[in-house]
Design a protein around this nucleic acid. Structure first.
Lengths: 141, 141
DNA sequence: ATGTATGCAAAACATTTGCACCTGG
DNA sequence: CCAGGTGCAAATGTTTTGCATACAT
């Protein structure tokens, strides 16, 4: 129950926060921009200001509930943090996003950071490419 | 001689372009934002508009002369492309940037993309952490 | 009640664009 | 000369902020 998640991180349980958390948890495509969330809320007749969405997402990020990704293309996207670290493969044509995890890559990153005397706080690996799905090739998107 | 680089990619040799290319090639810290370049030009008494810098950098990127990186923190940074691909390790405290290359990571990325049916066009790996330099620890920056 | 949260509008940024003027080949 | 380049100001798109009002506890 997400109410608990909110209380646990010290945030009051309010309607905007619950709705936004719900959308992030249930989205089919879990990588959403603030604007995406705004549109989804409008579609479900919820009147929540865009400014509130940005504020809430930033609070969620600080609280560790969501991750913010700065992929190419202007808008940041947010994704619920389910505790399983992963990186992303993004199709530059259709926008499809595939998550992946590679233990060897992770290990090598650690090795490199150690060698340079860095204590890792975060890292992001994003591979851009063209996927092979039919709909993408046809440009149907 | 950078005049040749410019001609080679089909750009007229103009003062702004030469100056910007020169700055990118000679900078001690080769990862510069458009604003950084603007400031450097101002310091050397060159009156070049910020809009021109953005236009020129975008042209350079298209021509393959420079790479644009979207690290965290709003501004994109540009780096001259010397043909040697590498990734970045960035200190979140003092901003220090270390470049690295790891053949195993590269190979693993290719393996993952292949497995998902993606043809890689680009990729970016950035590790954020805290470096161990004395000046950084002391917060002198 | 009271400290927080929200909504709105305005501000703040980074980046792009329109347009009149200038310049390199 | 003339296509292309530049400077300036204005436009854009995203994200943040100030402030008065509304809400959770």
């Amino acid at each position: 129950m997400e109410n608990q998640d909110l209380r646990r991180v010290g945030l009051k349980v309010t309607l905007p926060r619950m709705k936004i958390l719900e959308i992030l948890e249930e989205a089919v495509q879990p990588h959403l921009s603030a604007e995406d969330i705004y549109r989804i809320l409008l579609d479900s007749k919820e009147e929540i200001g865009l400014a509130t969405i940005y504020r809430v997402l930033t609070q969620f990020e600080t609280a560790g509930l969501v991750e913010r990704h700065n992929f190419e293309g202007g808008q940041a996207v947010f994704e619920i943090d389910r505790g399983k670290h992963h990186d992303h493969l993004i199709c530059v044509r259709c926008g499809k996003i595939v998550e992946f995890y590679d233990a060897e890559i992770e290990a090598n990153q650690q090795k490199i950071a150690d060698a340079e005397g860095f204590k890792i706080t975060d890292h992001s690996l994003t591979i851009y490419g063209e996927c092979s799905s039919e709909s993408c090739k046809e440009g149907i998107k």
